[in-house]
Design a protein around this nucleic acid. Structure first.
Lengths: 126, 126
DNA sequence: ATTTGACTTAGAGCGCACTCCAAGGTCGAG
DNA sequence: CTCGACCTTGGAGTGCGCTCTAAGTCAAAT
């Protein structure tokens, strides 16, 4: 049942490209390199897939490659680093929350601008 | 009363650097190049400042330099382009809104991860 | 038997948005 | 009169995160 997931499938499931997946691996973002099939092809486990999905979400929220590498190194060192990982995620969480807040503010500014354009057009149509 | 704003002051007020302000100007993002003082120094008007602030918000929400240039070109062409500008801003607004939504989802995922770490730590302390 | 297509590698290249450099001009304070 | 602060320019350099190339392997399909 579980004979590993091909790189193209992982790409499809995560929205990353196969190129990017290899790059992440080289960059030290995997907990361990995915196992290889007989032909030398990567054969991702479910755990690998879950990890890559998490990586993709951290990346999407603006964590740098270096930040993810740090996180991966901690996660690869097992239980003793749980507290550090927690702190890393908490710090990141705050950054993301701040960014969301900033974007919401900027959004209302854009909406005001849109509103003035709407009024402007209306006037010119009277 | 109004003798123009120095580039360093505009930088301070917008959070951009003087380097970036010159770069934006070269990149064609200004409605018109800011006037120069007797010594050849840029002397931004209030209108320039307001425009740069808007640029900084568009940039902060992910609009590319090319997108801002397009917007600046339209805005520099006066009234006839109001509708196009409106459409450009509406499209951008949707992108930003979508990104906020995505970030909020990712945030809850991060929060779940944080929660599992918290539980994990608690267990190891019993 | 050959062709197709997915995969492998090391390493080069790219696009974006800055960011800085070198060399020089202008100004007011000490 | 010199110093230091601030500005000017064209152009080069940087950092990030991919993104792609070239050359090769292998398995299945025609």
């Amino acid at each position: 049942m579980d004979e590993g997931i091909a790189i193209a499938e992982v790409a499809r499931l995560t929205g990353l490209t196969a190129h990017t997946l290899r790059y992440y691996e080289r960059a030290g973002l995997m907990l361990s390199p995915p196992p290889r099939g007989v032909n030398g092809h990567r054969s991702y486990t479910q755990r690998d897939l879950a990890w890559v999905i998490l990586l993709s979400r951290l990346r999407a929220t603006g964590m740098s490659i270096a930040g993810m590498r740090r996180y991966a190194e901690l996660a690869g060192s097992g239980v003793p680093t749980v507290r550090e990982r927690l702190e890393l995620l908490l710090a990141h969480r705050e950054q993301v929350a701040a960014r969301v807040e900033q974007l919401r503010e900027d959004l209302t500014l854009i909406d005001r601008k849109i509103e003035t354009y709407r009024k402007n057009i209306e006037e010119n149509h009277v």
